[in-house]
Amino acid sequence: MEIKKVTVFGSGVLGAQIAFHTAYHGYEVILFDLKQDLFEQAKLKFEQFKEWYQKDINAHSGDLDMALSRISLTTNLQESVQDADLTIEAIPENLQIKKNFYQQLSEIAPDKTIFCTNSSTLLPSQFAEETGRPSKFLALHFANYLWKNNVAEIMGHSGTAPEVFNLVVGFAKSIGMLTIPIYKEQPGYVMNSLLVPWLMAGLDLYRNGVADAESIDKTWMKTMGVNLGPMAMGDLVGMNTAYNVTQSYYELTGETVWKERMDFLKDNFIDQGRLGISSGKGFYEYPSPAYEDSDFLK
């Protein structure tokens, strides 16, 4: 089987990136979302991506315009998937939402279509049966800012066909990804198994009143010689995503500390409209956060 046409479900932070990047590498892409007005936000993101691609990877403006021409937008689920070779789902990180979505999708997608989830914390086996094609279902997880943080984690479940797994690895390579095959289901995969404990350590220091956000980030940035700390990364990831991650881990482990983190994020950030970069305020204020100041580490 050759992958030519790709459908991306969800035009949020990563969905829009996946759609644009896949189109940039020559694939015909359909981007699906529930409401037409969400596409206005996606179009703004695409224009921002064009600037970032030119700055970060020296992309040619003509190639970026061609990428946009390969993307179609639709709110019609059946239309979005009618000729798809591969789908990549980037909808909210909620198990029941994903189960409901795949049950609906399984009834209308062609037999040939491979289903991939971009889930960052859920395991493919948790909702493989709902896809109606467990042998053609697996996880394909991307990092944020995927054109420069070009890592793709590929993780199947026990029922994923080896040839499908290898085909998706090949697809990820074809769009310029450093591929990380994962041979055993692991919550958080490799990336978030490293990232989430780091973010949670920062959050715990903050919510327990040990140190403020700037002090936490300064300590990490200066000690490790890097340009982002866990609090700034939290703003980049976004509080809604962080909340969904803590909820997923709480449901998975039953450990009360995840419930405490989840409630803290909701009460102090989400309910206050402090969603991170997307809302202009999280741990920092944007568009000029303190950690970007040249004197931040002095």
Score class of each variant (00 low, 15 high):
Ile3Phe: 05
Lys4Leu: 05
Lys4Cys: 07
Val6Asn: 02
Thr7Met: 04
Thr7Trp: 01
Gly10Trp: 09
Gly10Glu: 06
Val13Thr: 15
Val13Trp: 01
Leu14Pro: 10
Ala16Glu: 03
Ala16Pro: 14
Ala16Gln: 03
Ile18Ala: 10
Phe20Gly: 07
Thr22Gly: 01
Thr22Tyr: 00
Thr22His: 01
Ala23Phe: 00
Ala23Met: 01
His25Lys: 09
Gly26Trp: 06
Tyr27Asp: 08
Glu28Met: 06
Glu28Phe: 01
Asp33Met: 03
Asp33Phe: 01
Lys35Ala: 04
Lys35Met: 07
Gln36Ile: 11
Leu38Met: 12
Phe39Tyr: 00
Phe39Thr: 00
Gln41Phe: 00
Gln41Asp: 05
Ala42Arg: 13
Ala42Ile: 11
Leu44Ile: 12
Phe46Thr: 10
Phe46Tyr: 15
Glu47Gly: 00
Gln48Asn: 11
Gln48Trp: 02
Phe49Pro: 15
Phe49Ile: 11
Phe49Met: 08
Glu51Met: 07
Gln54Gly: 15
Lys55Arg: 14
Lys55Met: 09
Asp56Thr: 12
Ile57Tyr: 06
Ala59Phe: 06
His60Trp: 03
Ser61Cys: 04
Ser61Ala: 10
Leu64Pro: 15
Met66Asp: 10
Ala67Trp: 02
Leu68Cys: 11
Ser69Glu: 07
Arg70Ser: 06
Arg70Trp: 05
Ile71Met: 00
Ser72Asp: 02
Leu73Met: 15
Leu73Arg: 13
Leu73Ile: 14
Leu73Asn: 10
Asn76Ile: 09
Asn76Gln: 13
Gln78Phe: 00
Gln78Tyr: 02
Glu79Gln: 12
Ser80Thr: 09
Val81Met: 06
Gln82Ala: 13
Asp83Ile: 10
Ile91Trp: 04
Ile91Val: 15
Pro92Tyr: 03
Leu95Lys: 09
Leu95Asp: 08
Phe101Arg: 12
Tyr102Asn: 11
Tyr102Gln: 09
Tyr102Trp: 09
Gln103Cys: 08
Gln104Gly: 03
Gln104Glu: 15
Leu105Val: 14
